[in-house]
Write a protein that binds this DNA or RNA. Structure first.
Lengths: 110, 110
DNA sequence: CAGATTCGTAAGACATGACTTACCGTAAGT
DNA sequence: ACTTACGGTAAGTCATGTCTTACGAATCTG
């Protein structure tokens, strides 16, 4: 239902960089912004996009906010991509059979 | 190595629409453009982006060009997404254990 | 309570990307 | 050879998204 927003969110390199950093575990905004060549507000905006897409969860802790990966958000995306891959394989296999058949007619057995 | 361009390509709704139409099998540009609310050149440009990202294969046939899904292009993307999902689940499980522990200290057994 | 941290939001500048029309090349049909 | 069909490319317009700085809200510390 909403893997669309997830894909759109993951399309941006900076946001993928944020996602990669969160693979090791939850981190506050300030720490995430430290290693990036952009301002902290920009990071906040990216985090909002990722959260709205269901890819991140937030947990307030004092004045800080811990962001972490949200497994739920990746599920739909994974399923869509898997079914797509299946169809791609199917089409590929069908074409392979055609190629084989054409090759046969030009190059008959025995 | 290049799942980045694949994601960027799939981020656009029109391009996803093209991908969806190609799930049933290969189709020429004109047919793909018929059902879309945009011009044929626009479709050509989208098809180029998808091809460059490794998501489509082209097969010239007379004056027409048949586009089909390229399984190879989805592989890296799938792997990256899967490993990401694994880490997300790991982080989620770790947090769940913390929650349970906190709940225990406030709500001691027996 | 005053000051310092941490972070989100608003407003505006700027770059990027998705469309259009116009045009050209190539292949098939008459 | 001429015409028609099909599709890629170029140039320019317009919308979208990504930054910046400035500001305000909430929490911790002294």
């Amino acid at each position: 239902m909403s893997y669309e927003s997830a894909i759109a969110a993951l399309a941006d390199p900076t946001r993928r960089s944020l996602i990669e950093r969160l693979r090791d575990g939850p981190q506050p905004v300030g720490r995430l912004a430290q290693d990036l060549p952009i301002s902290r507000p920009a990071v906040s905006q990216h985090l909002k996009v990722l959260s709205d897409a269901g890819l991140l969860l937030v947990e307030p802790s004092g004045t800080r906010r811990l962001y972490r990966l949200a497994p739920q958000g990746f599920e739909d995306l994974r399923r869509w991509l898997d079914s797509l891959w299946d169809d791609a394989l199917g089409s590929f296999a069908a074409r392979a059979r055609e190629i084989a058949k054409e090759s046969n007619s030009k190059d008959p057995p025995k």
